[in-house]
Structures are given as C-alpha cells and as structure tokens.
Design a binder for these strands. Sequence first.
DNA 1: CCCAAAGGTGAATGAGGTGTCATATTCAGC
DNA 2: GCTGAATATGACACCTCATTCACCTTTGGG
Lengths: 215, 215
Amino acid sequence: MSAPNANANAIVDPGPGAPKTARGARTRARILKAAESTFGTLGYHRAGISDITRDAGVAQGTFYNYFAGKEEILRELVRDMGHQVRARLAAEVVNARDRLEAEEKGLRAFLEYLHDNPYLYRVLQEAQFVDESIYREYYEAFGRGYLRMLADATRKGEIRSGNNEVRVWALMGMSNFLGLRYALWEGDVSFDEIVATISDLFRHGLAIDGLDRKP
Amino acid sequence: MSAPNANANAIVDPGPGAPKTARGARTRARILKAAESTFGTLGYHRAGISDITRDAGVAQGTFYNYFAGKEEILRELVRDMGHQVRARLAAEVVNARDRLEAEEKGLRAFLEYLHDNPYLYRVLQEAQFVDESIYREYYEAFGRGYLRMLADATRKGEIRSGNNEVRVWALMGMSNFLGLRYALWEGDVSFDEIVATISDLFRHGLAIDGLDRKP
DNA sequence: CCCAAAGGTGAATGAGGTGTCATATTCAGC
DNA sequence: GCTGAATATGACACCTCATTCACCTTTGGG
C-alpha cells in the first residue's frame, strides 16, 4: 500500500546475479532446494533466511548473491515447482485414449505427486498471500493447458459441450482438495477408490436419472 | 524456543478474561470485528495488533484483556465465521426438493456469500498455516454436515451410490475454487452460468453419453 | 603461474512488531 | 455519591530477522 515496496514488480529482474560459473550454479541450486524444504516444513513466515542458508550449507550473505530477497526466491520456487508438476502430469496423460481416461490418469498422477512432494502444496498456498500474482500465475498457466485439452476433447466429441473454463476451475478445485485430504492429511482411502469415485462422477454424473441403472 | 515465552501454551487458558460487563462484551466484539477486516485485507502476518486495535478504536493493551495473543483471536474468528457460513448455507438449502436442487442452491449461495464476505476466504486459508487444526476443524465440520446430506440423498435414491466421503471433498474443492476464481478474483462469468455448468456435470457427467464411453 | 572476476563469509545494523505493566478511567451496586 | 472491581491506556522493553557490507577465498582463462 505504501510507496517503498512498489519496485518489487517493476521489471522482470533477472536477479542480482545469475551464476556465471559451474560452482555458482551449484550453489544457487542448493539454496533453492533448501528453500523448498524449509518453506515446506516451517512455512514462509516462520522460515528465516538463516534456516535456508544453514540447510544449504552456505553463509547468509551468499543467499543475496543469487536472490534479491525472501519474496523473490519464493517466486522462483513456485515457478520451478509449477513446471515440474505440469511436466509430470503431461507425461502421465499423454498416452490416454480419451479425455475420461486422461482425467483418471491425471488425477491419480496428481495425488501421487503430492504424496511424494508434500512441499508443493504448502509453498504454493502460502505464496498466495505473499504475492497473489505468483499464485494466480500458477493456476492460470495450469488452467490454460487444461482448457486446451478440454477444448480438444469437445471437438473430438469425447465430452459434452459446456463451459469448459468453468469446468477447468471446478476440476482443479476437486484435485486440490482431494490431494490435500487424501494425499497429505490422511491416506485412509486408496487412490484407486478416489479415482474410481471421480471417474464415476465424470461418466454418469451424480444424479440417478431414468437412463442410469441402479447398482 | 528459549525460556521466557514458554508460558504461552502452559494450560488451556480460557482466555485472559471473558468480559464480565456489557461494556466489556461490546469491546471484545469490536476487536473481533476489527480483526476480521484487518486480517481480511492485510493478511494475518502483515496485520499488526496495533492495526486491529486502531481499527477497533481501543488501545493496544486492551487487546490483551480479551485475547491471549494474535493466534487466539484468529482461532476465535475462524470458529465464528464457520458458524455463519454453515448457517447461511443451511438456510438456503433447506427447502430444496432434492439433492441436485440443493447442490445448485448451495453453490449459488456459497458464491454469493463469498462475494459479500470476501474476508472469509483469506482468513480461513491463512489460518491453515498458522495452526492447521483450526482449518481442519472448519472443513471437517463442514464435511460432516455435507456427508449427512449425501447419505440421506443416497437413501432416498436421489443420487447414485458411491463413496460419499470422497465426493464431499471433491464438491468442497469445486466450490472453493469456483468461489476464488469467480466470486473473488474476476466476476467475468455469471453465477447462473457457473451453477448451470456444474449442475449439468451432476446431472449428466462429463462424458458424451450418460451410459458409457464410445466403443 | 597469475590475477581479475566470481563466489563466499558472518558480524553488524536497524526496522518492525509482540506482549507487558504501572497507571488512569469507568462501571455498577449499595 | 462512594468504592472496589473491571476495563482501558500507551509507552516501552525486548526480540526476531531480513538485509548490508567490507573483506577473504576460489576459480579458470591466458
């Protein structure tokens, strides 16, 4: 709100110094990885730069050789993690025979990914309140890809026509909450069961209407 | 971690003082309301106690007459807001003729509620990382009510049988994301359109034909 | 081997903010 | 109206941390 922090998003600053040697690149990577686990376990606010640098095995000052500050490393981290998830999901989904199968594979892959990388959720969700644009960027990027796939599927006649944009947000919300509840909090329901439940919803809806058979 | 602040969580303190007079009750309420808007706009971490007390029109010290600290007032706030939403949604949904209609009414009411009370989302989501139990309590309470309604609907033959627990989390996730995107961020799609899209999903699924996929 | 550029160090700085406390004011019952 | 209890005050002690900086060490091309 006040003036002094307005410079944060002035120009896409390449950072105080991109590493120019192999050693520098290694150090930068170590710091970034340390930030992931530190933010992931302690949370953004509780985590101090000193926690990150200790974890990375470097001095505090070294941090500022590569990142302008705490907020910038968060931004970097979210961008990085976003790429990873999208790459992973894309790989899992690429050989699905139709959209419904892709949804199943995608949901399972997402749950598995979250289970193996529990930091993603926390870092991402906290980023929302540090700088909303980081968060929006993540989901809008994710959503754009998703939308393209739904549009394809509509064109191919694999799914009902409808407002695919709205659907994208609904689907992302589902995955998000299912992941939080069943991949991060309590694994009391198998991923198979979850995928089957959601798949049934996609294939038949929730309603028992005249055409559907009873179990 | 160090010794001096260890008393913070010694015993489950019922709060430093529940108000004993009408004036006290009013003051406490003013502080709570101020905390809602302050946390809602600035966020939990950026918000200082001084911001809250300034907004409430009381001195900083007064705050500690009613709340043990910043975390406790957040806890109180989430509990309070949770009651309000659930009451509102229950009221909107009570005269629906079947579950599908209830879902429609419920989703619309939730979107409208969020639009009118934008602080709910921020306070709730931030609470997650201040003390996860506050957050889980909110959604688990919400989920319990939801589950009961789905179980009822299953019994009445209004919806397909299936894992209603998983469904509950999927549905909460949908509402949450749709609310964030369309009620808080950008109102570029009407609530009618959103409700219609989701209703179609519930009634027919995503697949092109209600029965099964193509050969 | 040399040496300029790159990388690394960690103590010092200072802003920001929570919670305390001694004191002042208001309330409610008598 | 008196008086003890409740409530309100706000300056400040105290601490946590992000960031800076002057100086040292390593790297790698010539």
